[in-house]
Amino acid sequence: MTALPRRIIKETQRLMQEPVPGISAVPDDSNARYFHVIVTGPEDSPFEGGLFKLELFLPEDYPMSAPKVRFITKIYHPNIDRLGRICLDILKDKWSPALQIRTVLLSIQALLSAPNPDDPLANDVAELWKVNEAEAIRNAKEWTRRYAMDN
């Protein structure tokens, strides 16, 4: 296996030394490119109080290519599908090598505070979010309670 690039080593060190509030990202013992991530649900969002597990993988050509991120904990959100895949521009066409693991995770946390049903990944969720936001938020809270608490 090739040596880990300085960029990944430095980013990992900083994530450990100055963690982002509400986010923890720990590299796997056997693979320094694979991170176990936990994001806490933002305040005043239907995900408040939940702890959401994600996995983050840095591909071979990182940071020239975006990291691959996926929710492991089930979540009711218009931009996240049943498999936990996330619809977020900076993970796709708006990726810039100047972005970092920390900025990516902050953007994902911000996505939880501000769902965007007009650019959906999970169509049924987005549909309900648009026609009956109150019910959608009730569902999101229910899912958070059921899947993202006390585990």
């Binding site: 050509d61 020239m64 810039s96 090598p97």
Partner: peptide, 29 residues
């Protein structure tokens, strides 16, 4: 950005079939 990163950036983009559309590496630039 350092020259090495520029050439890495171009290499990855070209391998993905991008050419005239390759841009600056800075965010939102």
């Amino acid at each position: 950005f350092c020259k090495e990163c520029w050439s890495m950036h171009f290499e990855v983009q070209i391998t993905q079939g991008v050419s005239t559309g390759i841009g600056c590496m800075a965010q939102e630039c």
